[in-house]
Nucleic acid binder design. Structure first.
Lengths: 201, 201
DNA sequence: AATTATAATGACTTTAAAGTCATAATTCAA
DNA sequence: TTGAATTATGACTTTAAAGTCATTATAATT
């Protein structure tokens, strides 16, 4: 394992790789230590317990995704365009980290192993993202582009879940290789569903 | 505990109640036995192991929901009406079993504790439902009501996830009491989102 | 180079819950 | 009404993984 990153990051990275390889449920502290090429006791010098380690892995994953999407979205002016870019960038991120998300979404849809407190921070992270989307929806309503009877935050939740479900669908029907092409058409599909629904208009 | 239902059902029922009360992660075979008022060994006479027990609980839960929704949907003729009824009936079911679903959806979004094989049957159950919806979408496309570029099964996945997300949203913002009123407006909200999207049309 | 401080080790301890099985109670069949 | 078959019991065994800590290695300080 690389020598020039500090142990904290090394442990996070090793955990993340392990999660991709064997899933959450099979992850043990012994395996984390082995993967990082250090002793188990060392892991406990950097992380209070397993729960804290897992939480940091998830937190780091979320922050990276959120920052990336946010900066891309902020290059756009119109609300509709913001949404289009958000969807594409989110799908892109999932694609680029597909093994991680495959575990997150499928192997274990859940966070059984996290303590109540961690579950709360999980929900807070989701809220951060859905609120961000909610703001876009809100200005779209004010500008008259979107229906006035919408609950912006709720639409945020809905969009996030559409993107997630799209990924789950692809994982389950194991699309052999994700391609630029596919990302583009998936983005458009979700975009159209969100904006226009399924009816002929 | 009631004497006139057989032990198998008694154990299933007790497990289900426990899941509602303490969640999946805290569920132990000792607690199940205690809740059912029988010895732990007895539980193992009716279920091979914990995994089998949990799987049966989920399976029974799904079958009940699916049968209920299916029979209601089949009273309708038009595809649009079928979808409207499906959404309402699903939300209703979640409402009536809200403590169970709160655990399923929130406390532990997942199935970490289930063996690979059980996860597969979990996915099969979901597929059964999304395919059912997919069929409705398909005939709606053929009759020209819905866009022709839709992937019916995928729309099935999307709708299921919208319904689920709606419930999660309500749980997280703990709407104090679900009311007839709320179920109706939630149904309409999802229906409109699915059929027309968020744009002004 | 010696001393102190910091970091790392991994064998060991603890914990928690799954799963077992000899024994006991109950039901059934003649 | 007794003996065989079935069902139930719960103390005990097993398992698996989290977490600890006395000991050792490395780095920093004088």
């Amino acid at each position: 394992m690389a020598e020039n990153i500090d142990k904290y990051e090394l442990i996070l990275l090793s955990s993340r790789k392990l999660i991709e390889e064997i899933g959450f449920s099979a992850l043990t502290m012994d395996k984390v230590a082995q993967k990082a090429g250090i002793a188990k006791g060392t892991v406990y010098l950097y992380f209070k317990d397993k729960n804290e380690l897992l939480e940091k892995v998830l937190e780091q994953g979320f922050e990276r995704m959120f920052e990336r999407i946010k900066s891309k979205v902020n290059t756009q002016k119109g609300h509709v365009e913001k949404l289009r870019v958000l969807i594409a960038e989110n799908i892109n991120h999932i694609y680029e980290n597909r093994y991680f998300f495959k575990t997150i979404f499928l192997d274990e849809v859940n966070v059984v192993f996290l303590k109540k407190k961690s579950q709360e921070s999980f929900n807070l992270r989701r809220k951060k993202y859905t609120d961000f989307i909610g703001e876009i929806i809100k200005s779209g309503i004010e500008s008259g582009e979107f229906r006035h009877d919408l609950n912006p935050t709720k639409v945020g939740y809905m969009l996030v879940s559409l993107i997630k479900t799209n990924a789950i669908y692809n994982f389950l029907n194991n699309k052999p290789e994700f391609t630029e092409e596919m990302i583009k058409s998936d983005s458009e599909e979700i975009f159209n569903l969100l904006i226009y629904g399924i009816s002929k208009h």
